[in-house]
């Protein structure tokens, strides 16, 4: 049987190369923007930071889409699905491979941001001093760490729900088209995609709202408590979606021939 770590490595390889290409384009875009600003005589110490943060949105959005496509293709690719791995391990390896690459892009963006920050340090500290003095005494370092960690977990859970929702829409469409006649299958698939995404979004917001409503009755109205309730709601939604995805993967989802 294939080792789980080997499967993660195998799935990460092509995604890593893709992410490197995106980051290279990102670097070129930052360099060109910065140079252009310098040539036109508008260069300031915050120029690099604004170039980095300006392109960061495009880079993270493109990498997100590319990884989602790679992740979904894995479910129907013979080269990957023929790996001797249970469906559960396969799903997990695919998820980890994508998340690892997404993290890689975010870390690269953070490093670029830090470099931009070094150049803009003077201006930024002047601006921040005012905000810092205004906030001073509101939160201890311990509180800040706790809030930061909670927000990171929340961000991860949001990503997990988005990812499992994309898979759910893809796999449901894949399964339904399998049972439809070939005639006008593409049109039907498109309509199905739109309908399933709409239904899924409605379902997710309904379940999320419901869980939040019930839990707010049980727990008080503390801010951090609210965040944990949101995390719990997202965990329930993603667990349900992943269970549905695994069921479809095991029973009906075939590789593209």
């Amino acid at each position: 049987m294939t080792n789980l770590w080997s499967a993660i490595k195998a799935m990460s390889g092509s995604r890593f190369r893709q992410m490197n290409q995106i980051l290279l384009i990102d670097l070129i875009a930052i360099a060109v923007t910065t140079l252009w600003t310098a040539v036109t005589g508008h260069f300031a110490d915050v120029t690099i930071l604004s170039s980095v943060s300006g392109w960061a949105f495009v880079t993270t959005a493109v990498s997100f889409v590319m990884l989602a496509v790679a992740s979904e293709r894995a479910f129907t690719s013979d080269s990957l699905r023929l790996i001797p791995l249970s469906d559960g391990k396969f799903y997990f390896a695919n998820l980890v491979a994508s998340f690892g690459q997404l993290l890689y892009v975010w870390v690269a963006q953070a490093i670029l941001g830090a470099i931009g920050l070094l150049f803009a340090w003077g201006t930024i500290t002047r601006e921040l001093r005012g905000i810092w003095s205004w906030n001073a005494g509101l939160q201890t370092p311990g509180d800040l760490f706790q809030t930061g960690a909670t927000l990171l977990i929340l961000a991860f859970m949001i990503w997990l729900v988005i990812w499992s929702t994309i898979s759910l829409a893809h796999l449901v469409t894949n399964v339904i088209t399998r049972f439809l006649p070939r005639f006008r299958q593409q049109v039907v698939s498109f309509v199905l995609y739109v309908a399933i995404i709409w239904v899924t979004i409605r379902l997710v917001s309904f379940v999320g709202g419901l869980v939040q409503k019930f839990s707010s009755l049980l727990i008080g109205q503390q801010d951090l408590g609210q965040l944990w309730i949101a995390i719990l709601s997202l965990a329930i939604i993603s667990a349900l979606e992943i269970a549905a995805n695994l069921f479809m993967l095991k029973k009906w989802v075939e590789t593209v021939h």
Binding site: T2, A7, A10, G13, D78, L82, P84
Partner: peptide, 30 residues
């Protein structure tokens, strides 16, 4: 899957993939 080797295993690789990279992949997963 553990006991079967199927010739469709190459399907799914991008056209730009070099053969030695495919071989590395095989070494890793099988």
């Amino acid at each position: 899957k553990r006991h079967v080797s199927f010739s469709e295993q190459l399907k799914g690789f991008a056209d730009g993939t070099r053969i030695d990279r495919v071989v590395d992949y095989y070494r890793l997963v099988y």
